[in-house]
Design a protein around this nucleic acid. Structure first.
Lengths: 137, 137
DNA sequence: ACGCTATTGATAATAGTTTATCAGTAGCGT
DNA sequence: ACGCTACTGATAAACTATTATCAATAGCGT
């Protein structure tokens, strides 16, 4: 990065504010609130730069396109809501860190992905499904 | 399925023998040992049928194409070797099943994926990297 | 062995995501 | 304010994985 552009600021701003990993489409739409002309090409270009510079990291989930979040959030896990499709960070530790594998295998790292309903999409008594209407991704 | 073809038998056979989730390419190559003319189209078609019929299930890993394994193996986790790229089943149980998430989230399921070196690719003293030469996927 | 038709093989087409292209725009040093 | 050139926006292109197409092949019931 050599110039401090509105687009770049908007994109890094959106990711910083989000507090959860965002898809390229989420970044595009949110970023256009700040820079209406923002294009998907610039989103991809800037994400690549931000990764190279170490500001953000891609979050990979099975069968889905990458999402992106701040590197400084460090090692943690992810929760995907099966209703609204948003992905949230889980910073709680796994209590028992004793991960089982065959004795002659060397475990170097691991991913844990939880699936379920986020607080917005938990079915509440006497109401219609909140998730259905709030589906944004 | 209405006819019992050599192709179908070969594909289901390869998956059954493997003992680990196989990629479409692995299934194609291994299947061609039994049916040399086997094409990738037939692999995809047959995999879809076998899934519909309940024989196999897709195994999804972050950022990778689906692999396939027998349904009857039941719920378990996976280990991906960072050297040879093979994926192995982990049937051992997680000792502490207390998965952490925000209190107002409902966890319905989870995926656990271990990364590291399989027994074939563990660096052994005084030898060159076995993994480099054995990279088959 | 015959014949019907489900299945196959080869390849084109599709789908989704990411990257390349290039003329126009806008940071930023002077 | 000027000018250089990195950056942007629009879109084409590339890429990978998967599915559709269709003439040729091969199960399987008779």
């Amino acid at each position: 990065m050599e110039r401090n552009t509105r687009q770049r600021n908007a994109i890094l701003g959106v990711i910083t504010e989000a507090g959860r990993p965002l898809s390229t489409q989420e970044i595009l739409v949110e970023g256009q609130a700040a820079v209406p002309s923002l294009s998907i090409a610039t989103v991809y270009r800037t994400l690549k730069d931000l990764i190279t510079e170490g500001w953000i990291v891609p979050v990979k989930l099975p069968g889905e396109a990458d999402r992106y979040e701040l590197t400084k959030l460090g090692k943690h896990y992810h929760f995907k809501c099966s209703s609204c499709s948003k992905v949230f960070d889980i910073h709680e530790r796994i209590k028992n860190n004793n991960l089982p594998a065959p004795a002659d295998f060397i475990v170097e790292s691991y991913d844990l992905i939880l699936y379920g309903r986020c607080s917005e999409c938990v079915p509440k008594p006497g109401g219609t499904e909140p998730g259905a209407a709030k589906h944004l991704v």
